[in-house]
Every structure is written in structure tokens, then in C-alpha cells.
Amino acid sequence: MRFHTAFFYDIKIQIRHGLYAVYILVSLFYIIALYQIPEQYREMVGVFITFSDPGVLGFFFIGGLVLLERNQNILDNLFITPYKVEEYILSKALSLTVLSIISSYAIHISVFGFSFGMILFLIGVFLTSMFFTIFGLGVAVRSHTLNGFFLLSSSYSLIFCLPLLELVGIDYSLFMLLPTKGALLLISTAFSPINMLEMIYAIGILLFWSLVAFWWARRSFYKMIIFKASEGKTL
């Protein structure tokens, strides 16, 4: 009851702040852009776009959502209720993931139509968004300004972007340890099927990193928000 109402209101707040409106525009843009791209590159670019935009949109927006709630002291008001930090993190991540999935799905079926790998593709988007949003939340509670958030998050996430190099042909086996590798693998199943082992690896690595991110975000949240380690610091 508590969780699903919080989740419902998170989505409502995102709609009221224009996130859905803007993603209609952005998705439309990608659909048109993808049609302009020569067919032999279209799938590759499609994978890249799905990962780098709808896939990680939560990462982009979580900073604003958390910073606003924090600087307006809404967080203080939330955590003098029985609401749990774990519920807060999950509600934020799941609600933003809903937008990720809708947007990726819309772009994909508009450009490429339905395909067999659809379920795995969506699982890929789901896990990618969950990981990056939770991770972003951990960064957000450590930041005090939007620009600070984007600096911190882009320097943290640089390493996660390394596997994107494989799209232009650069690949190292060490990339296998990063969640992005699993994300790209799952998202590309829409075009090229993967075997069971690859599937288990991809889902496993994303789940593993999501759990790590959750543990870290939870710890950061307790430290920065609940125990007020940043109390008295200026914005």
C-alpha cells in the first residue's frame, strides 16, 4: 500500500514536471533521426541511442529530483514518517524506469517494428535504467548543486561508458566486468539473438551491479541525509 502509492505519486510528480512531455518530443526526434540514417548503420545507432538516452534518463533526472526534495526539506518531512530509505530508493528508480521503458519501446517499434528479442530488449532497458538511476541517486545525495551533480556523475560514469567503444570496434575482455557490457548485449538482442550463456551473463552482471549500486546509494543516503553528515555546509 505504502510503496505503490509512493510509486504512483513519484510518476505523477514526474508527469507534472514535464518529463513525459519532453520524452514524447525526444522520442519523436530519435524516431525521425533513425529513419534518416543509412540502413546498414541504423541498428547499431539504435542500440547506442537506446542505451545512452532512454536507458539512462533516470541517471539524468534523479539529480534534479533528489536535489529539489532535499533543498526544499521535503526529505526531512518524508523521513519523519515510517517511509523507509530502501522504499524511497526503489520507488524513485522504478518510477523513472517506467519512462525509460515506454520511450525505448516506442522508439524501437516505430523504427524497427516488433521483433523476437523484444522481451530481452526490455529486460535490458529495465536493468540498465535501474542500475544507473540508483547509482545516480547515490551521487545526487553527495551533491549540492545541479552542476556539481553532473560533474560528479559524469566523472564517475566515464568508466561505465568504456564498453560503448565496441560499437566502433574497440573491445577489451575487461569490459566484461562492467554493467554496460551486459546492457549493450541485452539491448542488441532486438537485432541479433544471444545464446543462453550470454543471456545469463548479461542479466547477472547487471543484477550484480544494481545490487552494488543499491547498497552504495543506501549507505550514501543514510550518511548524507539521515545522519546529516553535510549539515552546516553551504550549498
Binding site: Y23, F61, G64
Partner: peptide, 13 residues
């Protein structure tokens, strides 16, 4: 700032 973030996505186009 949330609306600002959303707008920056749109304006960026």
C-alpha cells in the same frame, strides 16, 4: 530544477 532538466533535454535538440 526538475523542469529545467526536462527542458534542457528538449532545448538541446
Amino acid at each position: 530544477k526538475i523542469e529545467g532538466l526536462a527542458l534542457s533535454k528538449g532545448v538541446g535538440l
